[in-house]
Computed example of a mutant assay.
Amino acid sequence: MNYLIETRGLSKRYGAAMRVKNLHMAVPEGAIYGFLGPNGAGKSTTLKMLLGLVHPTNGEITVFGRAMNAKNRLEILRNTGSLIESPSCYGHLTGAENLRILQMLRRVPERAIEEALALVRLDGQKDKKVAQYSLGMKQRLGLAAALLTHPRLLILDEPTNGLDPAGIQEMRELICDLPRQFGMTVVVSSHLLSEIDQMATHVGIIADGALVYQDTIERLHEKSEHHLALRTNRDDAAMEVLAKNGIACEARDGFVLLPPLEDEAAAHCVRLLTAAQIGVIRLEERRKNLEDIFLDLTEGANSL
Rank of each mutant, 00 (worst) to 15 (best):
T201A: 05
T46I: 01
L74F: 10
G124N: 04
L272Q: 05
V280G: 08
N233G: 07
T149D: 12
E97N: 09
G81T: 08
T201D: 03
E262K: 14
A238V: 08
V27I: 12
L192C: 11
L77F: 08
K48E: 11
I217Y: 09
M1V: 15
I76A: 01
L261C: 07
H202R: 06
F182C: 10
E158C: 02
L83I: 13
Q181L: 14
E115K: 10
Y133I: 02
A145D: 08
Q198M: 13
V203M: 02
N302Y: 15
Y33N: 04
E285N: 12
L102P: 01
H202V: 04
R287M: 11
M171W: 02
G37H: 04
L143R: 00
T62Q: 04
Y213K: 03
A70F: 13
E284A: 11
L290W: 10
R287K: 14
H92C: 11
L10P: 01
G15C: 07
P87R: 05
A70D: 13
E6G: 09
T185G: 03
M1Y: 14
M1E: 15
R73L: 07
L156I: 08
G81V: 02
P260T: 06
A301C: 15
V130K: 02
L99C: 00
S190L: 07
L53A: 07
R100K: 14
L261M: 15
Y90W: 12
R286F: 14
L10W: 04
L50C: 05
R121M: 04
I293Q: 09
R271M: 12
R107H: 13
Q277F: 10
E170M: 07
R107D: 12
L192G: 05
A237V: 04
K128V: 06
A265H: 11
L135M: 15
G183W: 08
T45M: 12
L174T: 00
